[in-house]
Nucleic acid binder design. Structure first.
Lengths: 214, 214
DNA sequence: GAATTAATTGAACGTTTGTTTTATTAATTG
DNA sequence: CAATTAATAAAACAAACGTTCAATTAATTC
């Protein structure tokens, strides 16, 4: 046997990626074998090596594209105005939507860093750090402008990212809550966590001060 | 060669557990081989089978003891009084301290669930659910008593647990912050996140209401 | 329609895996 | 001090691993 009828390189490569993400998310990178992956795609193991030179290269590709996709999604979602609360809202909303839509890929990116060689790891961590820096700068700006209460910018950024990424651990798209409902609840928690002042609240605070001043 | 001078079953078993936790935390369960683990202990691979019948049994033991330890630590730390805010404070403090002191074991318990067979997985998840239930009941009691603002008890519990467990991802004991400082910051974030009313704040709220009533 | 290129199979490679078996020595018991 | 038990080493097992290679067929090009 050899080339099969209707075979198409692009389709096969896409099928390999999809199957790899699903399998690695469920069983872990080390536990997934090339033969198992090939069987899922409906192909022999040797065929995988036409698209990815090694097993680790496959993992690296999946992770890099996930991280680049996350950064691109944020660039597209980042609001033009520079109100820190609006930017924080956009950040949390984008993060939750992106990750819920890519539960498996997110699991891979979060759990399999240790399976990368040093060079590949460094490259992925660079992307991750760039992303986290976006949130830190929002929190810093908000604290300086007095619309956010943040004790420690770096620590709060980590806490928020861990909280909102954690959605994928329990969220299942066909259960009682929609993505929008979950996002709304997490947004409310984020705003309370950062002591965010909405414009309405700011007005109330001003009125209270005036009331007391009399 | 055979039994070595000074060999002691109890010490060897403890050494195996310690080495296993450290190796699995770093490389992942599937990536760690029995020979690698044995070499770390200073013994031949066959010797491991005197203490653990299979590789998975070793993992199950590590996980179960970690989860049982966590539940035991919480029972010991749980305050006698039933003030929800005090209980929430104790829960967060205990959780952070326990996990920071057992970073490697926590990583194993959080990351390697997928390497367990169905029965072993069920048993571990039972313990985990029991622990999470403790936090949910604190949040529910607090909301009913009006000292906490919680939209969705289950969702908030998951958010808090993910946030405070995330400490181990970045925390290193010899850096700029001590465990107590980190705990204080996370406690403050938890209290804001849940809209916790301290007794002092409750008094202020009452005073404001009286002021407005005039 | 012949020549070329793309896509895949099937078999094989040397390693490494978790685990078992048997022999051997150290420590303990009577 | 002999007998027994505890703790380990050394060697071997079949199975599975990531990867390579040559052969083969489908699709495309000229």
């Amino acid at each position: 046997m050899a080339r099969t009828a209707g075979s198409d390189g692009e389709k096969t490569e896409a099928a390999i990626r999809d199957a790899a993400v699903a399998l690695i998310a469920r069983h872990g990178f080390e536990a997934v074998t090339m033969r198992q992956l090939a069987a899922e795609v409906g192909v022999q193991a040797a065929a995988l090596y036409r698209y990815f030179p090694t097993k680790e290269d496959l993992l690296r590709t999946l992770m890099r594209e996930h991280m680049e996709g996350l950064l691109a999604a944020w660039e597209a979602a980042r609001p033009a105005n520079d109100d820190p609360v609006a930017r924080l809202t956009a950040f949390v909303s984008n993060h939750i939507r992106f990750h819920v839509e890519r539960r498996h890929a997110t699991h891979v990116s979060n759990m399999e860093l240790r399976s990368l060689s040093r060079d590949n790891l460094t490259a992925i961590l660079k992307l991750r750090t760039a992303y986290e820096k976006e949130l830190r700068s929002i929190l810093r700006d908000g604290a300086e402008a007095g619309v956010l209460e943040v004790d420690d910018t770096g620590l709060t950024a980590m806490a928020i990212i861990q909280m909102i990424t954690g959605v994928i651990v329990w969220f299942r798209p066909d259960e009682r809550l929609s993505v929008d409902e979950v996002t709304a609840t997490y947004l409310a928690m984020t705003m309370r966590l950062t002591g965010a002042r909405t414009k309405t609240e700011e007005r109330h605070v001003r009125q209270d001060a005036e009331l007391r001043a009399r």
